[in-house]
């Protein structure tokens, strides 16, 4: 009879364990308030990324269309995979001296790994991480960006 007894306890234990699982899923089925889905494209207006979230590199421009990038290429050197290319030009300023300034701050978003090393390296705090993340495009050439705005120039006093 001991065989029969173990057989029955086995069946009982098995059924009980299965019912425990079903109770849990049943609980979630009957409690729709447990649903945690955030509806992305609908909550786009209220969706706020964390302050430190690293979406892409942008260059800070003020109202006069001036930035703080001196073209020292510290970020270019710090970048582990050549995401940033700085093309410099020489301007003649008011005193007649030649001065280095950036012509184009080329940023390859398609290569960027958001590691934050360029931001750490920048001595003049000219670039920062933006919280944007919607980077889908149909053509990957669109991901190569020029960060300095057209016509922008370096802010006075930044060396």
């Amino acid at each position: 009879m001991s065989f029969l007894k173990t057989y029955i306890t086995e069946v009982y234990g098995a059924v009980k364990s299965l019912l425990t699982g079903m109770k849990l899923t049943g609980y979630y089925f009957t409690h729709p308030k447990e649903i945690i889905t955030e509806e992305y494209p609908d909550n786009r207006l209220t969706l706020k990324m964390a302050d430190r979230f690293r979406g892409e590199v942008v260059m800070k421009h003020d109202d006069n269309n001036e930035h703080a990038c001196t073209g020292c290429s510290a970020c270019e050197l710090a970048c582990p995979n050549g995401t940033i290319k700085i093309i410099n030009k020489f301007e003649i300023n008011a005193e007649g001296k030649k001065k280095k300034a950036i012509d184009a701050f080329v940023y390859h978003l398609e290569l960027c790994t958001m590691c934050n090393l360029c931001i750490e390296a920048c001595p003049t705090d000219a670039i920062k991480m933006a919280q944007t993340f919607e980077h889908s495009v149909y053509d990957r050439r669109l991901l190569t960006k020029q960060l300095n705005l057209p016509g922008s120039k370096i802010r006075e006093g930044v060396e």
Binding site: G13, A14, S17, L18, T20, G21, K23, L24, T25
Partner: peptide
């Protein structure tokens, strides 16, 4: 409840 104790899983 859901996995560890489940007889099929064990």
């Amino acid at each position: 409840q859901l996995v560890t104790g489940n007889i099929i899983f064990q």
